[in-house]
Write a protein that binds this DNA or RNA. Structure first.
Length: 863
RNA sequence: GCCUGGGUGGCGGAACAGGUAGACGCAAGGGACUUAAAAUCCCUUGGGGCAAGUCCCCGUACGAGUUCGAUUCUCGUCCCAGGCACCA
C-alpha cells in the first residue's frame, strides 16, 4: 500500500479491470431476482456537467448496493441523441449533426467511464442509429394501423424571411432568434398521438404510483387537468345554428348573460356576415391570428373582445345573449365557446364591466345576503341557487346534477368531461430526428411504409441550409418515391419525430438492445421490466414521464408488453447550485476567471473587485459551472462522488462548495492512512464476529459501534436513499477506529479492528468503489473481489451496550443524567433519578405528582 | 390566484415512532509537530448570564393550542423555492 492516497493511479486500474472482466454485464436469468436501475439518459451535448455526475452517482450507489445484496442488476447507459442542438451546432460549425453527435458521445462516454459507474456498456444505445429508430418507425406504423395516430392542421411558429419553422424556444419575445423578423403563426398538417384517449387511465394510476414522489404525481394530475361538467347548446337567434359550450358550472346557467367565442370559432364568420360589426370582427380575428400562441396565452393580458352582431338564446330562461369574440376564449379547450356568467367568474366579470354587460347573481353563499354578492368581484364558490326558476333554493352540488338532467331530458345538453391535456403533436420540420415512416399518394392518401422497407433511413447528404426549407423537403432523392399500394409516383413525409418519442421507450430497448427480430425480445422485457428504480431531474416530471407512461400503455394495448406502468419507483434529485460571481464590466465570471484574495472575488481580466450573487442552478449562461473533468483530475472520481452524496440528501438541491470537496478528499485520505496503519499488521488476523459479551471494554465499544454502523448505513440506503447520513455514520466509525493506538492493541482488539476494517471497506464500496477495492485488498482480502461480496449483516445482540445513559428531567427540563444497566427495572430507574443531585435541587420542597419513565431514554419527574 | 415542498448555529445539514436540539462535515479560533510553510494531529465553537458549575436563562421563521414533555402534532400568520396559470 502506498504511503499516500493517489486516486488517479488506482482509479484507472480498477476501471480497466471492470471493463476487461465485464464485471457489470447483466444477463437475463429467471432463477435470480432482478433489479432494474435506470438513470435518465443524457443528451450528448458535448461534456457532462455536475447535474449528470450527481444523477449518475446516486444511481450507481443504488446499483452497486443492490448488486451486493444479491440482486441481478441491470444498469444501462445510452444517448438521447436526436435533437435540435446538433442541427444548430452543425450549421454554426459547418459540420454534420451526426459527426457532432458521435464525437460528443465519444467524449462523454470517456468522462462517464472516468467516474467508475457500474454500467453494462455492452447495452449502450444511441437513439440516432437506424438500429434504434427503425423500431420506433415500426411502432408508429402499428399505432397508425390501430387508429392511435391522426393528422390535423396545427399552428407552428413561422419565420417568413428564413422560410422555416421555429421551435418555441427559438422565438425570442415574438421575433425569430436568427434574423429578428416577427414570427407568424402558420397552419401545417401535422401528426398527433392520441394520448387523450389515455387521459383517464393515466390520471387514475397516479394515485397508485406509491413509489413516486407525490409532487410529481400531483404535477401530472394538474397537467392532465380533468374537469367534469356539461355541454349545453345555445340556439342562435334567427339562424338554424346553435353554439355548444362546455361548462363546469351548470348551476350558474341562469346567470349567463353573454357568450364568448374563440376568434377561430367556425361560427364567427356566419354570425357577423352582413352585419355592421363585420369589419371590426374581421380585424380582431386577423390581429389575434398574428399573435403567437405564447403571447395569446400570457396572463396579465387585458380581457378584450368585440360584439359579433349575433345573438343566442339561453335555453333555460330564454334570455337573449349577445355573442362576442374574446381573446381569452381558446379554440383548443372545450368547444371553443364560453357561456359567460359574470357574477360567478372573475374573467367574465371583468369583461362585463368593461363592455357594460348585465351581471345577474344566481348563487348566494350560505351566510351572505344576495345583494352583496358580486359587488366588487365575482363570487366563484358554491352556495344556494337564486334567480334560477324552479332550481332556486338548491345547493350548487345538487343544482349541477339537476340542470344536467334537465338539459339531457330536453335534448339541449349532456354530461361531459374535459381535459387540459392535448393530443401529442409529434411532427417536427427538422432534419436531425427519426423520419416519420409515411408516404403521401394522391390516390391512396397517407400510406404507411411497409414493414419490410424499414428503416426509413435519415439521408446523410441533406443540405441543412437548402433554400431555408426543411432540409428533407428539398432532397429529391428522399422525397420522390412510388406509392407502396398503387405504385404511382408519391411523396415521402419529410417531418421527423419529436425527440420525446425516442425517450418514451428506450428503457424497454435496453432489455435487449441488439435484438433485430423485433422492437425487443419479449422474454427479456418480461424479465427486466418494469424499471424498479428510475432516477432523474424534476424538470422531466411531466413531459418525459407522462409520455413514457403513455407509451407503455400503448405497448400494452398492442400486446407487446404485459404491464402498464414503466417505473415502479421514482427519485427526482435536486439541482446542483453554486453562487454566481459578476464583474461590473465583464458580466458573469467563470470560476476560472475569478481570483480570490481573502474571501473577496476579483475579476481576473480587469482586476476589479467582483460581486458575489445569489446561489443558483449551475448554468452556462450564469457561468457558475464547475467542470467535472477538472475535478476528477484534481481529486479523483471517488472524492467527487463522495461530495455529491455527502453534501445533501438526493432530493434536495446541492450547493457547490470547494471546501466541501476538499473535506471529502481529506476523509478519504484519512481512511487510507487508517488502513495503512493497520493493514500489514492485521493481514493474517481473523475478524472477530462473535458476541460482544466477552470482549474487554474498549474492544467491545468499537465492536458495537461497527454493528451499529452497518445497520445505520443499510437502513439509510435501503429505506430513504439518505446517503449523506450513511456516510456520516461511516465517518463516525472511522473516527472511533482512529482513536485506537496500534501499539497498545491486544489480541481481542485486533480481531475487532480487523472486522471493523472489513466492514468499512464493504460499507464504502457503493459510494467510493475504487478506494474501497484498494483498502479491501490491503488487509489481505483477495484483490478485485470487493464489489462481488455480499452486503454485510449485523448481529442484533451487538447493537447496544449493557448499560444505558438516561437523562433526568424535572417538568420536562433536562436536569441530570446517569448510567444504568439495560435490564434495570422501573423502580430502580425511578429511585436513581430521584437521587440525582442536580434534579434534587429542583424537587426539594415540592410535591412529586408523577414520575414518567421512558425505556432507554429518560425519566421525567413532574412536581 | 391555485397546487406541492420548505424555513434548525457563521455555512451544508442531523435528530428514522412526541422523549438529551445541533450528529457528520465545512468555516473560524487556539495549541502540538516544523528553522518555516504545507500536510497532519489535539482542543474550543448556538446566544446570553454569573457565585464559573455534574450551573442557570433563552433558542428549531412568528403567534397561539394539545401534552408530563413539541424541531416533530393542531390552528392561524409571515417568508422562500418549484409547478400550473385567461382551461370556461
Amino acid at each position: 500500500m502506498d504511503q499516500k492516497y493517489h486516486p488517479a493511479e488506482i482509479e484507472a486500474r480498477w476501471q480497466s479491470v471492470w471493463q476487461k472482466e465485464k464485471t457489470f454485464a447483466a444477463r437475463t436469468d429467471p432463477d435470480r431476482e432482478k433489479y432494474y436501475l435506470l438513470e435518465m439518459f443524457p443528451y450528448p451535448s458535448g461534456r457532462i456537467h455536475m447535474g449528470h455526475v450527481r444523477n449518475y452517482t446516486i444511481g450507481d450507489v443504488v446499483a452497486r448496493y443492490k448488486r451486493m445484496c444479491g440482486y441481478n442488476v441491470l444498469h444501462p447507459m445510452g444517448w438521447d441523441a436526436f435533437g435540435m442542438p446538433a442541427e444548430n451546432a452543425a450549421i454554426a460549425n459547418n459540420t454534420h449533426p451526426a459527426k457532432w453527435t458521435y464525437e460528443n458521445i465519444a467524449a462523454m462516454r470517456r468522462e462517464l467511464k472516468s467516474l467508475g459507474f457500474s454500467y453494462d456498456w455492452d447495452r449502450e444505445i444511441a437513439t440516432c442509429t437506424p438500429d434504434y429508430y427503425r423500431w420506433e418507425q415500426w411502432l408508429f406504423i402499428r399505432m397508425y394501423k390501430k387508429d392511435m395516430i391522426y393528422r390535423k392542421e396545427a399552428h407552428v411558429n413561422w419565420c417568413e424571411r428564413c422560410q422555416t419553422v421555429l421551435a418555441n424556444e427559438q422565438v425570442e419575445s415574438g421575433d425569430c432568434w436568427r434574423c429578428g423578423d416577427p414570427v407568424r403563426q402558420k397552419n401545417l398538417k401535422q401528426w398527433f398521438f392520441k394520448i387523450t384517449d389515455y387521459a383517464d387511465d393515466l390520471l387514475e394510476y397516479c394515485d397508485r404510483l406509491d413509489g413516486w414522489p407525490e409532487k410529481v404525481t400531483t404535477m401530472q394530475k394538474n397537467w392532465i387537468g380533468k374537469s367534469t361538467g356539461a355541454e349545453i347548446d345555445f340556439p342562435v337567434e334567427k339562424m338554424d345554428e346553435s353554439i355548444r359550450v362546455f361548462t363546469t358550472r351548470p348551476d350558474t346557467l341562469f346567470g349567463a348573460t353573454f357568450m364568448c367565442l374563440a376568434p377561430e370559432h367556425p361560427l364567427v364568420e356566419t354570425l357577423s356576415a352582413g352585419k355592421k360589426q363585420g369589419g371590426e370582427v374581421a380585424g380582431f380575428v386577423e390581429r389575434m391570428a398574428r399573435e403567437s400562441h405564447a403571447d395569446r396565452i400570457m396572463e396579465t393580458r387585458e380581457k378584450e373582445g368585440v360584439f359579433t352582431g349575433g345573438w343566442c338564446i339561453n335555453p333555460l330562461n330564454g334570455r337573449r345573449m349577445p355573442v362576442y369574440i374574446a381573446n381569452f376564449a381558446l379554440m383548443e379547450y372545450g368547444t371553443g365557446a364560453v357561456m359567460s356568467v359574470p357574477a360567478h367568474d372573475q374573467r367574465d366579470y371583468e369583461f362585463a364591466k368593461k363592455y357594460g354587460l348585465d351581471i345577474i347573481v344566481v348563487i348566494r353563499p350560505e351566510d351572505t345576503d344576495e345583494a352583496s354578492v358580486a359587488a366588487t368581484e365575482a363570487y366563484a364558490g358554491d352556495g344556494i341557487m337564486v334567480n334560477s326558476g324552479d332550481f332556486s333554493g338548491m345547493d350548487s352540488a345538487s343544482g349541477k346534477e339537476a340542470v344536467i338532467e334537465y338539459t339531457e331530458k330536453n335534448g339541449i345538453g349532456k354530461r361531459s368531461v374535459n381535459y387540459r391535456l392535448r393530443d401529442w403533436g409529434i411532427s417536427r420540420q427538422r432534419y436531425w430526428g427519426a423520419p416519420i415512416p409515411v408516404i403521401h399518394c394522391d390516390a391512396c392518401g397517407a400510406v404507411p411504409v411497409p414493414e419490410k422497407d424499414l428503416p426509413v433511413v435519415l439521408p446523410e447528404d441533406a443540405d441543412l441550409l437548402a433554400g431555408g426549407k426543411s432540409p428533407l423537403e428539398s432532397l429529391e432523392s428522399f422525397v420522390n418515391v412510388s406509392c407502396p399500394e398503387c405504385d404511382a409516383p408519391a411523396r415521402r413525409e419529410t417531418d421527423t419525430m419529436d425527440t420525446f418519442v425516442e425517450s418514451s421507450w428506450y428503457f424497454e430497448r435496453y432489455c435487449s438492445p441488439h435484438y433485430d427480430a423485433g422492437i425487443f425480445d419479449p422474454d427479456d422485457v418480461a424479465y427486466w421490466m418494469p424499471v424498479d428504480q428510475y432516477i432523474g431531474g424534476v424538470e422531466h416530471a411531466v413531459m418525459h414521464l407522462l409520455y413514457s407512461r403513455y407509451f407503455t400503455r400503448v405497448l400494452n394495448d398492442l400486446g407487446l408488453v404485459g404491464f402498464r406502468e414503466p417505473f415502479t419507483r421514482l427519485l427526482t434529485q435536486g439541482m446542483v447550485c453554486k453562487e454566481t460571481v459578476s464583474c461590473e464590466s465583464h458580466g458573469f465570471l467563470y470560476p476560472e476567471e475569478t481570483d480570490y484574495k481573502k474571501d473577496a472575488p476579483f475579476c481576473a481580466r480587469c482586476g476589479k473587485e467582483a460581486e458575489t450573487g445569489r446561489v443558483e442552478k449551475m448554468s452556462k449562461s450564469k457561468k457558475n459551472v464547475i467542470d467535472p473533468n477538472a475535478l476528477v483530475e484534481r481529486y479523483g472520481a471517488d472524492t467527487v462522488r463522495l461530495f455529491c452524496l455527502f453534501a445533501a440528501p438526493p432530493e434536495k438541491d446541492l450547493e457547490w462548495s470547494e471546501q466541501g470537496v476538499e473535506g471529502s478528499f481529506r476523509f478519504l485520505s484519512r481512511v487510507w492512512r487508517l488502513f495503512q496503519r493497520w493493514a500489514g499488521r492485521l493481514a493474517d488476523t481473523t475478524p472477530y464476529t462473535g458476541e460482544p459479551g466477552g470482549l474487554p471494554e474498549d474492544a467491545r465499544d468499537l465492536y458495537i459501534k461497527t454493528h451499529q454502523s452497518v445497520k445505520k448505513v443499510t437502513d439509510d440506503i435501503e429505506q430513504r436513499f439518505h446517503f449523506n447520513t450513511a456516510i456520516s455514520a461511516v465517518m463516525e466509525l472511522t473516527n472511533r477506529m482512529n482513536a485506537v493506538e496500534p501499539e497498545k492493541a491486544e489480541a481481542p482488539m485486533e480481531g475487532v479492528m480487523r472486522y471493523a476494517l472489513d466492514m468499512t471497506a464493504l460499507l464504502l464500496c457503493p459510494v467510493v468503489p475504487h478506494i474501497a477495492e484498494e483498502i479491501w485488498a490491503a488487509t489481505g482480502n483477495k484483490p478485485g473481489t470487493l464489489c462481488d461480496q455480499p452486503w454485510p449483516g449485523y448481529r442484533e445482540d451487538s447493537l447496544a451496550s449493557a448499560t444505558r445513559l438516561l437523562v433526568v428531567q424535572v417538568n420536562g427540563k433536562l436536569r441530570g443524567r446517569f448510567e444504568i444497566d439495560a435490564d434495570a427495572d422501573e423502580e430502580t430507574i425511578k429511585s436513581r433519578a430521584l437521587e440525582d443531585p442536580n434534579a434534587v435541587r429542583f424537587i426539594r420542597g415540592k410535591t412529586i405528582r408523577k414520575v414518567i419513565v421512558v425505556r432507554d431514554k429518560l425519566v421525567n419527574i413532574v412536581v
